[in-house]
Computed example of a mutant assay.
Amino acid sequence: MSVAFHQVGFIGLGVMGEHMCRNLCRKAPQPVHAYDLRPDALRRLKDDGAQARGSVRDVAAHADVVFLSLPSIDHVEAVCLGAEGLLSGERKPAMIVDTGTSDVARTRALAARLAEQGVRFLDAPVARMPEAARDGTLLIMVGGAQEDFDALRPLLACMGSDVVLCGDSGCGQIVKIANNMVLMMNVAVLSEALLICERAGMDGKQLFDVLATGSAASQALNVAGIRALAPRDFPEGRFSTAYALKDVSLASALADTAGVDARILAHTRALLQDAVANGDGQAYYPVLINQIATR
Rank of each mutant, 00 (worst) to 15 (best):
V65D: 03
V182Y: 05
R269G: 01
P125C: 09
T257P: 01
A60H: 08
T137Y: 09
R22Q: 09
A111N: 07
L272K: 01
H6L: 07
G14Q: 06
Q173L: 07
S72Y: 02
M1L: 06
D40P: 02
R57N: 08
F121Y: 14
A200W: 07
I177D: 02
A224E: 00
D74T: 11
T101V: 00
L271A: 09
V164C: 05
V223E: 10
L195C: 11
L221V: 07
A220S: 10
V187T: 03
L165W: 05
M181G: 04
Q51F: 12
Y243N: 15
L139N: 15
V142T: 11
D58I: 08
G82L: 06
R238E: 00
A251P: 02
D47M: 04
L155Q: 07
C158D: 01
E84H: 14
R295H: 12
G118T: 10
K46Y: 14
A220M: 08
D74E: 10
V187L: 03
T99W: 01
G204S: 09
D247L: 04
I96A: 03
V65S: 04
A109S: 15
V3N: 08
V15H: 01
V210H: 09
A157I: 11
A217V: 12
R120I: 06
L271G: 06
G204W: 02
C171D: 14
I174N: 11
A217M: 09
L288M: 14
T101I: 03
D168A: 14
I73E: 08
K205M: 02
T99E: 02
V66F: 02
A41R: 15
P154M: 02
A193N: 05
G160E: 00
A220H: 14
I140G: 07
G281R: 03
K176C: 06
S2F: 10
G172W: 02
D168I: 03
R232L: 00
A275G: 06
E116Q: 15
P29I: 00
F208S: 00
A132F: 05
I226H: 00
Q7W: 07
R43H: 12
A105G: 06
A230N: 00
V126M: 14
Q173E: 08
L139E: 08
R26E: 12
A262E: 05
I96G: 02
M95I: 13
V97A: 08
P29D: 12
L254A: 13
L194Q: 01
A127R: 10
R199D: 04
S169E: 06
A4T: 14
V3A: 11
V76N: 14
G82M: 09
C197S: 11
Q146E: 14
V142S: 05
P93G: 11
D135V: 03
M129V: 09
L156W: 07
S69I: 02
R106C: 05
Y285I: 01
R232K: 00
A188E: 05
